[in-house]
């Protein structure tokens, strides 16, 4: 599973990255989590409010920081 956290480096983006890492461990899934900070890459997903969470190329959440539990549900 490929997970990307889109964000230009604000505090909410870091929080989302952290929550995602915790969710991956808690859900016990094989996943490659990466941060995408390049604006051209972010725009390619059509995202206008950061942070956003992308799982296997599909935008799951935009402009908010979902909790660890919510991300766990998205991972299934």
């Amino acid at each position: 599973m490929k997970i990307e956290v889109l964000g230009t480096g604000c505090s909410r983006c870091k929080q989302l990255h952290e929550n995602t890492m915790q969710a991956v461990i808690a859900a016990d899934v094989e996943a490659d989590v990466s941060k995408v900070e390049d604006i051209t890459e972010i725009m390619r997903y059509g995202v206008m409010s950061t942070p956003a969470l992308v799982i296997d190329g599909v935008v799951k959440t935009v402009g908010k920081v979902p909790s660890v539990d919510e991300i766990k549900k998205l991972l299934k």
């Binding site: 983006c13 972010i42 725009m43 206008m48 409010s49």
Partner: peptide
């Protein structure tokens, strides 16, 4: 509309684009 300065860049580009 929600706005935080960290979203200003993607927002601006999205509008112009």
């Amino acid at each position: 509309t929600p706005f935080c300065s960290c979203s200003a860049v993607p927002l601006f580009i999205g509008f112009v684009e």
